[in-house]
């Protein structure tokens, strides 16, 4: 089942193109949408909620057409905006109950679901106090609760970690993970911070300037590469251990790069397995301490730097 599907979706404003022929399919799970500010993330969410018509192309959410079934989509999804959206003079309970009723829940169900949901996001006694006195972290939890209170099949979370301190950020990321793993609700979360989405998402979509840069599972992004990172200690006999090892490995016919004290050794092709042995033997022969020898992993940031390099290359050409 596809949760969200877009087909050459475009949104043009008089001066800017916010989305440019975006075609992407999103499966159940936690999906991260990465893009710099102004990359078209919020525009995409607006279109998917059926609140803003696309200039061109089609999109479906939970199998419903965004241009025709906006109201039905909004009954089945939740939305947590990026900005503050809470009135300070009412309690979290009153506010979330009201929002549950706005989603169509009968009064009794609205009250029960509110109590459950606030507990799940980690608000307890304080839920009876006016929201004005809450910390940023607590406010974010209330915002999340109002998006979950009607038990949607999918939630859109727009920059949910904005303004949180590192601990609050970790809590929020853990909570986002639980929305899918424990509650069974698919999550579409945006962020301009790649590291966060690496940790929480099953699948990552990268957009830039309204164009799709890449859409694949997080493990593909951060999957093992063919590069081997090696780090060694210096000894009295060989004061420059890294340099000595570098020399030895070059002589053994391996291609490698040095980055400070870390050597990146290519371990591709048929001799991939032999490379490990060669490195081990070279280190042993030199009598160095082997601190680290591991397959290097990709980081999502590389998607951007690779893209920038390509852009730079094509600009120069």
């Amino acid at each position: 089942m596809t949760v969200i599907a877009t087909e050459s979706l475009s949104k043009r404003f008089p001066r800017v193109t916010a989305l440019d022929r975006l075609t992407v399919g999103i499966e159940p799970g936690v999906t991260g949408l990465v893009g710099a500010n102004g990359a078209g993330k919020s525009t995409l969410i607006k279109i998917l909620l059926g609140l803003s018509p696309a200039t061109e192309g089609t999109a479906t959410v939970l199998g419903l057409d965004v241009s025709r079934d906006g109201s039905a989509i909004r009954e089945r999804v939740g939305y947590m905006p990026e900005h503050d959206c809470l009135p300070p003079d009412v309690s979290a309970t009153e506010f979330v109950v009201h929002m549950a009723r706005m989603s169509g829940l009968p009064p009794t169900a609205a009250r029960e679901r509110t109590a459950d949901t606030l507990r799940h996001v980690g608000l307890y006694e304080e839920r009876y106090r006016p929201i004005g006195g809450y910390s940023t972290g607590m406010k974010q939890r209330v915002k999340l609760a109002q998006a979950l209170v009607h038990d949607p099949q999918l939630v859109f979370l727009d920059e949910p970690t904005n303004g949180l301190d590192p601990v609050g950020r970790d809590d929020m990321l853990g909570l986002i993970r639980r929305i899918y793993s424990d509650f069974g609700i698919s999550v579409f979360v945006t962020s301009h911070l790649l590291g966060e989405l690496e940790r929480t998402s099953d699948h990552i979509v990268v957009i830039d300037g309204g164009k799709l840069l890449r859409s694949s599972s997080t493990s593909d992004f951060t999957g093992a590469t063919t590069t081997l990172a090696v780090e060694v200690t210096d000894t009295d006999a060989t004061p420059d251990g890294t340099g000595a090892l570098r020399k030895a490995l070059s002589e053994a016919g391996l291609s490698l790069q040095a980055d400070g004290h870390v050597l990146y050794v290519e371990a591709a092709g048929d001799q991939a397995d032999d490379t490990y042995d060669t490195v081990r033997d070279a280190v042993a022969e030199l009598g160095l301490g082997l601190v680290r020898m591991e397959q290097r992993r990709h980081r999502i940031a590389e998607v951007f730097s690779d893209h920038d390099q390509q852009q730079g290359g094509s600009d120069a050409a």
Binding site: L49, L51, G70, S71, A72, R74, E75, V77, G78, Y79, P81, H83, D84, C85, L86, P87, P88, M99, M102, S103, G104, Q146
Partner: peptide, 17 residues
Amino acid sequence: RDLRFKTVPLYFSRPID
């Protein structure tokens, strides 16, 4: 109040328009 505290988007992300 809905405008000042930006609660309006929460209404419009629900079935009502």
